[in-house]
Simulated assay, not measured.
Amino acid sequence: MSTSTSDRTRAIPTRAIIYWTATVLVVAELIVGGLWDVARLPFVRDTVTHLNYPTYFLVLLGVWKLLGAAALLVPRAPLVKEWAYAGIIFVDSGAIVSHLTVGYARGEVAVLAVLAALTVVSWALRPPGRRIPPANPV
């Protein structure tokens, strides 16, 4: 008895598909952005300078992004994942506020908002093995 492609596709819950799609997009942005930050590419350095941040901040931010990407991909370690999700939201919301406050490259605000939303979707739909177990009542 063979299983058709549509039967196999239906076997994967929609929640898992949405979770992994959002997570892969967030992780891809963290890896690419983290590498660009660590390399201090000119256009990234120019953006940070226009936002009135020191350029050395890019290396710190880039390393955090790369560690966050790793944390989201590794199995287990739910507490580390919680911290990674929080850090991503801090970075994205900080970037949104910075762009709006300084008035520089406001078009990027929409992209940053989408990335923040994808992070929230990934966090909200993560499977039980990637969540902190509930505390036992005393």
Score class of each variant (00 low, 15 high):
Ala84Ser: 11
Trp20Leu: 15
Val97Leu: 14
Pro42Gly: 10
Pro54Asp: 13
Arg45Met: 12
Arg130Tyr: 14
Lys65Thr: 00
Val32Ser: 12
Gly103Met: 13
Asp7Trp: 03
Leu73Val: 10
Ala105Gly: 07
Val32Cys: 09
Thr14Glu: 01
Thr21Trp: 08
Thr5Val: 13
Pro128Ser: 13
Val80Gln: 11
Leu67Pro: 00
Leu35Val: 15
Leu73Trp: 01
Gly129Pro: 11
Ser2Asp: 02
Asp37Pro: 04
Ala95Ile: 05
Ala39Lys: 08
Ser4Val: 02
Val24Tyr: 13
Trp123Asn: 12
Val74His: 05
Glu82Asn: 04
Val59Asp: 12
Val138Asp: 00
Pro54Lys: 03
Glu29Thr: 07
Ala28Thr: 13
Thr55Tyr: 02
Asp37Val: 01
Ala28Pro: 04
Ile88Thr: 02
Ile96His: 11
Ile132Phe: 07
Thr101Glu: 11
Val114Leu: 14
Ala113Pro: 07
Leu125Ile: 02
Leu25Pro: 04
Ser2Phe: 08
Glu82Lys: 00
Asn136His: 14
Leu115Gln: 03
Thr3Gly: 00
Ile96Cys: 07
Asn52Gln: 01
Gly33Pro: 06
Ala11Ile: 03
Val32Tyr: 14
Gly62Trp: 08
Ala11Gln: 12
Ala86Ser: 07
Val48Leu: 13
Ile12Phe: 05
Ile31Gly: 15
Glu108Ile: 04
Leu100His: 07
Thr5Cys: 07
Ser4Tyr: 03
Val26Lys: 09
Tyr56Phe: 15
Val102Gly: 01
Ala71Val: 06
Leu66Ala: 05
Gly94Cys: 00
Val44Ser: 08
Ala28Glu: 06
Pro42Ile: 07
Gly107Thr: 09
Thr55Gly: 04
Trp36Ile: 02
Thr5Tyr: 13
Gly103Ala: 08
Lys81Asp: 06
Thr5Gln: 10
Val38Asn: 05
Val48Ile: 14
Leu61Arg: 08
Val26Asp: 00
Ala16Cys: 03
Trp123Asp: 10
Pro127Met: 09
Phe57Ser: 14
Ala39Ser: 09
Ala11Val: 00
Gly129Ile: 09
Val121Lys: 14
Phe90Leu: 10
Thr14Phe: 10
Lys81Ala: 01
Leu60Cys: 05
Pro127Ser: 13
Arg131Asp: 05
Val114Thr: 06
Val138Tyr: 01
Val102Trp: 06
Val32Met: 12
Thr3Asn: 04
Ile89Phe: 02
Arg10His: 08
Pro13Val: 09
Leu60Ser: 08
Ala69Leu: 04
Pro134Ser: 10
Leu25Phe: 12
Gly62Asp: 01
Val138Gln: 04
Pro75Lys: 12
Pro127Gly: 15
Leu35Ile: 15
Glu29Gln: 12
Gly94Ile: 05
Tyr56Asn: 14
Val97Ser: 03
Ala116Phe: 14
Val44Tyr: 10
Ala22Cys: 15
Ala113Phe: 10
Thr5Glu: 06
Ala28Gln: 03
Pro13Ser: 12
Tyr85Gln: 00
Ile89Arg: 02
Phe43Val: 03
Asn136Glu: 13
Leu58Asp: 05
Lys65Trp: 01
Tyr56Asp: 15
Glu108Leu: 11
Val120Asn: 11
Ala95Asp: 05
Val27Ser: 08
Thr47Lys: 06
Ala135Arg: 14
Ile31Cys: 15
Asp37Asn: 15
Ile89Gln: 02
Val44Glu: 13
Val74Lys: 07
Thr55Phe: 02
Ile12Ser: 01
Leu112Phe: 10
Ala77Cys: 08
Ile31Asp: 15
Ala105Gln: 07
His50Thr: 04
Ala71Glu: 03
